[in-house]
């Protein structure tokens, strides 16, 4: 929670206990799991990216409030894009689950200071929501695998519609964020 204000991130880290420790271990382990799944899907990996991801994940452990997590996710995505050719591989579910765990762990690490004792209800809520998102990832994979069976030709209209949909969704999310911050 708010390392910027306390400015004692190292000290805070040393005070971690219970769920705080588990979350920090997950922040470190989940990108490694994503790398492993990518390697299993592609039979090879990019050493430079792998070497970069680990220290960045460690920075996320110390500063979960920072934007370094975004960089970790970006590197995992780039490695997947560059190395994996099979678009319907089930290992993508493994990477998605790893990224879900990483995202949930970083987010959860920011809501409470490391030494705070989490309640059972909080643990259960975060786990439940993560499982829902993992389920959504599995559904997406099923849809992608289904599409992959059919050879869909190039369609400019489809690309434009997709991009427009993404733009509208992004604007909707941005409006929501800006609205709250301006209050």
């Amino acid at each position: 929670m708010n390392d910027r204000r306390l400015e004692e991130s190292w000290w805070l880290l040393s005070r971690s206990r219970g769920v705080g420790v588990v979350l920090r271990v997950l922040i470190l382990v989940s990108p490694v799991a994503a790398i492993a799944c990518t390697r299993l899907a592609a039979d090879h990996s990019l050493l430079a990216i792998n070497v970069a991801i680990i220290p960045l994940a460690f920075v996320c452990v110390v500063y979960p409030d920072s934007h370094i997590g975004l960089l970790v996710v970006l590197l995992v995505g780039i490695e997947w894009l560059v190395t994996v050719d099979d678009q319907a591989t089930p290992w993508s579910i493994g990477v998605a689950i790893s990224l879900t765990v990483f995202h949930a762990s970083v987010a959860a690490a920011t809501v409470a200071p490391p030494a705070a004792r989490w309640t059972r209800a909080m643990c259960w809520r975060w786990s439940r929501r993560s499982l829902v998102v993992m389920g959504a990832s599995a559904c997406t994979w099923a849809a992608v695998a289904a599409i992959d069976r059919y050879a869909v030709g190039s369609s400019a209209v489809l690309v434009v519609v997709s991009l427009a949909t993404i733009a509208v969704a992004a604007m909707w999310a941005r409006d929501g964020s800006v609205g709250v911050s301006q209050q």
């Binding site: 995505g77 995202h103 829902v132 990832s137 599409i147």
Partner: peptide
């Protein structure tokens, strides 16, 4: 999602689903 559309890589949508779902949920 943008890269998935432009690069014609729907598998990237699977990787992006956790973030899209969490963002929609949060908003």
């Amino acid at each position: 999602a943008v890269v998935a559309v432009l690069a014609r890589r729907p598998d990237l949508l699977v990787l992006g689903t956790p973030f899209i779902a969490a963002a929609v949920w949060a908003v």
